[in-house]
Nucleic acid binder design. Structure first.
Lengths: 146, 146
DNA sequence: TATTGTTATACTCTATAACTATA
DNA sequence: TATAGTTATAGAGTATAACAATA
């Protein structure tokens, strides 16, 4: 592209749904990260808090299974949340620990949930309920089936 | 979750379109990576090859702009592709270089394109043309607008 | 002054392997 | 034997800062 001020390249990937999925996901994750950073959380940490909030003392293995995070990667995440004073561990048996939100964790989890919902509204609010639930179930079908 | 063999946690994120987008994208990228690994390419490298294939000697800055890859990150990618014997650089002016596919690069780019199309078909082939193009344009609207 | 390309660096996410302790 | 949790480590991808050379 030798001499063009506005060099618009031909992009054969532009019509590909897989490429669009990747670009959309990556932009939205970046935007969500910015918002959650105000709570001192990453999207992954926020997801973990919301999952603990909605369940009765899940173990970190439980959470990892649901969110597709490996045990080895859950360890630093949970100890980080504990260090921040957002969760506590209570022994369930000799090897596993149920995770609970602390008082402050309850507040932060609720704020994280609000942030995630607001984020969704700002991006998907234009779609009517039918289109949005169609999109949701189509995307879910891509990874939960097979 | 004290005593459940099948511990199905409640997941409030499950109905969230943003969460589904993330999960779908991450699974599909992992699958695409596996397929492209047989060509010795990452998804990013494959995208770059396809973009060079479709354009007349784009510079790495051109490509970075289209694919949203920063200059600093394009440098090791292009030198990697050059080291693999897939691309060559030709000076356009004193500071920028047009990227060309080598003979072998042409073959690999074509194979990469085929792989990406086959990957899409295996995941989106169930959708009819209308549903697929609606999904494509909805996703594109999420990141290219605003 | 702005742009191209490079190097150095760091952070996140993800992956495997190996280990201890417990069921 | 299988599971829970941990540590170490490595590879992507992405981010900023700083620099030299060129437009």
């Amino acid at each position: 592209m030798t001499d063009q001020t506005i060099s618009t390249l031909r992009n054969p990937l532009d019509t590909r749904v897989g490429y669009q999925l990747r670009r959309a996901s990556s932009l939205l994750m970046a935007r969500l990260s910015e918002r959650l950073a105000q709570l001192g959380l990453s999207p992954t940490e926020a997801s973990i808090l919301v999952l603990i909030e909605a369940n009765d003392a899940p173990t970190q293995s439980d959470i990892g299974r649901v969110l597709a995070i490996k045990r080895a990667n859950m360890a630093p995440l949970t100890s980080g949340l504990e260090r921040k004073g957002l969760i506590q561990r209570e022994a369930v048996d000799g090897r596993s620990h149920g995770l609970h939100l602390t008082e402050r964790g309850v507040e932060v989890a609720s704020a994280a949930r609000d942030t995630m919902i607001a984020h969704e509204e700002s991006h998907f609010g234009i779609l009517d309920d039918e289109a949005r639930s169609l999109l949701t179930s189509t995307l879910k079908g891509l990874w939960s089936e097979r």
